[in-house]
């Protein structure tokens, strides 16, 4: 491509009642911030014509009511909102709502069955892995896969490991995992193929609560290492993987 700018925004049809708007490529905090800024603007400007909005790493999925707006009209409105966003200085309005969540994690092979292998594969000590995983703030790039599942990025280069060849069928709720440039907490028991390095006692999805999840795209997350005692006092379970 001779001019990278001309490729984005790119809007594609995603069914009879949805369009997908790409604002860039790959995992990039600036692109993700623009996605969130656009999400807010689209929600305010067109909310009564839409039935859902799903921001992700570099895209925004817009589900609309076919009785309220046509795809052509919607595309035109969205293009206008993207232009305004560019004029107003991209990420304005998105970052000020970002919340920092601190998540206490018990890092130990008993609840992090991939911790020792991760150390071997990365040629780091377990303490190094813990230090590197807790040292920096991560950004919530997307929420999905399962309720309350936040895709966090980006991991330090040295911690990057491929997904498991054979995903586990059952991972306990609260498991803290890494894969490629991403890290996440499994909010509920589920199958999964990421490398598990620890566990948190925090509830990230409670179907009985009013609030589905404390996190939203654009928020920041920092992990903090805690002892076995602290983990158990906070209600953490040491139940092992099946």
């Amino acid at each position: 491509m001779s001019n990278a700018e001309s490729a984005f925004p790119k809007i594609v049809t995603a069914g009879a009642d949805a369009i997908l708007v790409y604002l860039g490529e790959g995992i990039d905090p600036d692109v993700n911030a623009r996605v969130m800024a656009l999400t807010n603007r689209v929600g305010s400007a067109l909310g009564d014509k839409l039935y859902d909005l799903v921001p992700s790493y570099n895209s925004l999925m817009i589900y609309y009511n076919v009785l309220a707006v046509s795809e052509d009209e919607l595309r035109e409105c969205v293009r206008k909102l993207i232009d305004e966003l560019q004029q107003d200085g991209d990420a304005s309005g998105a970052s000020k709502q970002s919340t920092l969540h601190t998540i206490d994690v018990y890092y130990d092979p008993s609840v992090g069955p991939d911790l020792e292998r991760a150390a071997k594969q990365t040629s780091l000590s377990i303490d190094d892995i813990i230090r590197m995983h807790t040292e920096q703030e991560y950004r919530v790039y997307a929420m999905g896969f399962a309720p309350g599942f936040a895709y966090l990025g980006e991991l330090p280069e040295k911690l990057r490991l491929p997904r498991l060849d054979n995903p586990r069928t059952k991972i306990p709720a609260g498991s803290v995992a890494i894969a490629e440039a991403q890290t996440a907490v499994y909010p509920s028991e589920s199958p999964g193929g990421w490398n598990i390095i620890g566990r948190t006692a925090e509830t990230l999805y409670d179907p009985q609560a009013d609030n589905i999840s404390p996190m939203k795209v654009g928020d920041r997350v920092q992990f903090k290492a805690v002892s076995k005692d602290e983990f158990e006092q906070a209600g953490g379970s040491l139940e092992s993987l099946s």
């Binding site: 689209v42 929600g43 009564d48 039935y51 589900y63 009785l67």
Partner: peptide
């Protein structure tokens, strides 16, 4: 949707 009177809920200003 018209035939079956389907009224989808709006995704108002509080978009998330």
């Amino acid at each position: 949707y018209q035939f079956f009177n389907v009224r989808l809920p709006c995704q108002g200003g509080d978009n998330l």
